Computed example of a mutant assay.
Amino acid sequence: MDSTPHGAAVTAAGFGVKGPRGWAFRNIDFTAGPGSLIAVQGPSGSGRTCLLLALTGRMKSAAGTAEVGGLPLPKKKAAVRSVTALAHVPGVAELDPALTVGEHLRERALLQGRFGGSLRALLRPRQERRAAARALVDTALTAAGLDLESLPKGIRTSVRDLERLEALRLSVALALIGGPRLLAVDDTDLKLSDGERAAAWKMLHGLAAAGTTVLAVCSEPPEGDEDVVLVRTGSRPEPASPEDAPGTPTATPDGPDATDTADTTDSKGGEAGEGSQGGPSGSDGTGSADSTPAGAPAADGHDDEEGAADALAETGRA
């Protein structure tokens, strides 16, 4: 097992997820070391979010192999969930627009203290526990670059009143409270201006430089950035056999796996209550860590989009 204390190494070879009506994505191949910034690029509907969920143990793969921090997928899904966290994923890890920034932070710190810490930490005096929770929140906010004093009503600002970049920073901060080795962020650049997009990538670069491996879904990665491991989704090879044709039901994403029985660890970062947000995607696709341009959608891309939509629906996102 990977013994790196902070970021988790991530590898994938021929990795794929299949829904009831076809492939969400397949043939994903890349290698990223601990503390890497991994950009998953592709058009909406190309399987980006399915890949993010599969690599964090929230969706069961149907082809190939992958490892996160030395933990194989899908065999060790529960263990992978315990060392990963989600941010900006609607329907899975989503901000509540009716709550304030402070309410989100307090809820996440409470969950972390109750379920993410050791028994010894729970037995500490209340004052010590509160101080530790404040330190976790402050560290996460600093890392995400969210200045509470700059918000319209400070910590009492409602989520619905946040700018898009501020909401992204809050989502990331909430995920970081759990101290994940891999942080997965969906739709990083969704509806951001050029300046906001640059600020978002600067934040993610900073997190990776500090030791946390970051997996970020995007429409466009930073140009000319050699420090980014680029994974592309979007094109699909012809089926190698009738079993590979779209529409063939196979593995059920995000369902309990019989090989998970040896893993009793639950998600430290919060499997369903991560407290963050994002944008949906999903279709048939392939990807790699090289600079090969993304391929054009196949003629039967509609069937592939249905396959990805089905895979996401089984996680409760459709």
Rank of each mutant, 00 (worst) to 15 (best):
G224F: 08
P246N: 12
A313E: 03
G307Y: 03
L190Q: 07
A209G: 11
S291E: 03
R26F: 07
D161I: 09
D225S: 12
P280A: 04
G64Q: 09
T142W: 00
K153C: 00
D290V: 14
S276M: 08
L122D: 07
S36Q: 05
A308N: 05
A210N: 10
G57A: 05
L207D: 04
T248K: 11
E128Q: 10
V80A: 07
A298Y: 07
S193V: 08
P253F: 01
E163D: 01
R181M: 11
R129Q: 03
P221C: 06
A216W: 06
T31G: 12
E149S: 03
R58P: 08
E67K: 14
R164E: 00
G19C: 02
R124N: 04
R114N: 11
T65G: 09
K77G: 14
G35W: 09
F115I: 15
G178L: 02
F25I: 09
V101G: 05
P97S: 02
V68L: 04
L183P: 11
S291Q: 04
E220K: 15
G116S: 10
L122H: 10
T100R: 10
E306G: 14
A9L: 00
D189Y: 06
T233Q: 04
L146T: 04
D29E: 02
G307E: 00
L55T: 13
Q41D: 03
G7C: 05
R129V: 13
T259S: 06
T84P: 06
S193G: 08
L122A: 13
K202S: 12
D138H: 04
R48L: 02
R156H: 01
L52P: 11
G206T: 11
L86M: 12
A131S: 05
K268Y: 11
P72C: 09
E274R: 15
M203K: 09
L37Q: 07
G301K: 15
A32D: 01
A62Q: 12
S288R: 12
T259R: 11
S193A: 07
H302T: 15
P180R: 10
S283V: 13
G45S: 02
L95N: 04
V68S: 03
A133Y: 02
V214S: 01
E149R: 09
L192S: 05
V159D: 00
D187M: 08
G270A: 05
A200G: 10
I177A: 02
H205V: 12
L176I: 14
T261P: 13
G57Q: 05
R48M: 01
A63D: 07
I38Q: 02
K153G: 00
R236A: 09
G42H: 06
K202F: 08
E166M: 01
S219R: 11
A85F: 02
G35F: 07
L190S: 08
A240N: 11
D304L: 13
A200R: 03
P5W: 03
L151A: 00
